[in-house]
Write a protein that binds this DNA or RNA. Structure first.
Lengths: 351, 351
DNA sequence: ACGTTTGGCCCAAACGTTTGGCTAACCGCG
DNA sequence: CGCGGTTAGCCAAACGTTTGGGCCAAACGT
């Protein structure tokens, strides 16, 4: 019962049906405006076009890729798609790719170097035209190798080793947070700084620390701890922080998810976030605003980062130089670091 | 400077270098155990193998797909990858696909029917071998069409119209939540039920409502509201709930992110979640446990769902019947719906 | 000694496009 | 009438695999 596997229409079929040569049909259907004008008379063009979409012709991408050595495919590597930051960046990539007639191909590397290598080979084996790495480690040896092999690629999210990268201005973001906390009168602060191999956390921490140093309040070693970029990581980092000395008056967690873990840990220690201690995150994840005590954070243009990353890759594929871009972050102040807002919140809640 | 685009190694090159015919090399390298035995003598096999990986031969997938009419590609459609539930399911799919030598191709449809159609065509245009839909609408007209065209596919996450689907037993999950709330003595409850076209929300609500009906406490119309599957949606839904009558003693939100919105809304109304009102979510997202008041929720095996979905698709591709699977959910009770735990939490926090 | 198997390999035709070259008809023009 | 220039299209060779048949020589059976 029912229509089964009708073999897809080919140029050949169209050509035969119209008494034309397959090459003529090909030019009519696919030649770009610049060159295809001399392909056929306009009535012929019309006949071809009509029949093609009557039969629902779809160009066979494998044949095309084989012939042209171009797949219109691009490979994307991310640490994990279940991290909403990366997922959102990828949405931007995919969106822009579709606009350029490209398809994308994404895969998780969990930030494990061997997996990064393996997946890169796998993706390259699929003969992609170029790659986008969202999981660069600042020790960029691997990327240098890839570049040496002549593979066109750009980085997003994290920068590394001078390769073209589209990232948020994380350093500036860190400074903004510092500025804000200084204004609020904080003098003794701590940082949950994320993974040491990721430029995001490092740069955010760097900007933050620099600003405090400039204010004459250098942040001591033990006030900066590294951690994973998720809630468990934030919690663990915060525990270490709390174990290692007196209470700081504010904590900057370089990532919203980490911040959630931090908040949990602080509460476990009987501290009220927003009142007893300030917390600031990074990325302005959709949840930040919805937390019981809304989280002050830095909005980074994630989706836009993806879009621009793809644009840069397209440039590279066209033979131009890829350029790095720094996207502007924006500080979003909420109750978790602003006593005034916190008071208003509590008044409203009546609690 | 540096090595540029060395044209990739082909079977031909290997054959020439060894004085063999390309077909021989092909069989040596790719024939599956059953049939390739008579392809070449074992010394030849050895020579071929050695040279192949010395030169770093990689089979050209386009040529192969063209010839065999099989791409080893599968297309995946999801509402949005930035929803951690779908992202996690996709991780499972990708993981399993890699194990089967398949590559996946994922794209966002935002649950918009026209986009679903367009993306499906696009994916099919890429000549995938099969598809996985994570965004099925219960009005399954579109999927019926796709099926009629003979496209092999399976559903994950949501079921629809009797097509093979691997989903969580959402109905059972709903019942479990009801059971739990009944035990806790709740008599007047409400549901934030998600989008009406998604089987997930519908089934969860169904199981929940049925259990309450069986307990002689049917849930009135106005206690069930629909909403988007995110924090904003949960918040909006909850506002409507609160506006439409007296306070229920518990709210079941069919999705953790929605629950976060709900929690926000309740707090805005001066209610303490866990004390004044119980809240239960669904999915056991990583955040649920980290919330200030940890969220009772139902753990659904998201990654496993992806893995099994892919397995089913593989079966379908092999010509067998695709089977639907119902995965077992698990109730995770936390402080948001359990006064005892809530007390312990508050005692510890000292708040 | 003579058919028959079988091991080891080669041949060639696909798969569906793209693209540089070619041809043949036609036009206008001097 | 011959010539250059279009116009409208055909031809054929790729791209890198896979796969059903061959073919030849050596081994085997009787």
């Amino acid at each position: 019962m029912g229509a089964k596997k009708a073999r897809p229409v080919t140029l050949q079929m169209i050509a035969d049906q119209l008494g034309l040569h397959v090459s003529t049909v090909s030019r009519v259907l696919h030649a770009k405006p610049g060159e295809g004008l001399r392909a056929a008379s306009s009535p012929t063009v019309e006949r071809v076009r009509r029949l093609a979409d009557e039969l629902g012709y779809q160009r066979n991408p494998h044949a095309m890729s084989l012939r042209t050595q171009r797949s219109n495919l691009i490979g994307v590597l991310v640490p994990r798609l279940s991290d909403v930051v990366l997922a959102t960046i990828y949405e931007g990539i995919e969106e822009a790719a579709a606009e350029h007639g490209l398809s994308t191909f994404v895969t998780n590397t969990r930030d494990v170097p061997e997996v990064q290598r393996a997946r890169t080979e796998m993706v390259l084996g699929r003969r992609v035209d170029g790659m986008i790495f969202g999981d660069a480690h600042s020790d960029s040896g691997f990327l240098d190798e890839v570049a040496a092999r002549g593979v066109p690629f750009v980085l997003v999210n994290r920068r590394a080793g001078g390769h073209p990268a589209v990232v948020c201005d994380d350093y500036l973001g860190g400074r903004m947070v510092a500025e804000h906390l200084l204004e609020q009168g904080h003098r003794d602060v701590a940082v949950v700084a994320g993974e040491p191999y990721a430029s995001t956390g490092v740069d955010r921490t760097g900007g933050f620390a620099d600003r405090f140093r400039e204010a004459g309040l250098p942040i001591p070693e033990h006030r900066i701890v590294h951690s994973r970029f998720d809630a468990q990581g934030g919690r663990a980092g915060t525990e270490r922080l709390l174990a290692s000395g007196p209470l700081p008056s504010a904590v900057f967690v370089v990532n919203d998810f980490g911040a959630i873990g931090t908040i949990g840990a602080l509460r476990d220690h009987g501290l009220r976030v927003g009142a007893d201690i300030a917390v600031v995150g990074f990325n302005d994840t959709p949840l930040a605003a919805e937390l019981p005590v809304p989280l002050t954070t830095v909005r980074s243009p994630m989706r836009e980062m993806g879009r621009r990353g793809l644009r840069q890759l397209v440039r590279v594929l066209a033979g131009e130089q890829g350029e790095s871009e720094l996207l502007r972050p924006e500080l979003i102040v909420r109750a978790s670091s602003d006593p005034a807002r916190y008071e208003r919140l509590m008044a409203k809640v009546g609690g």
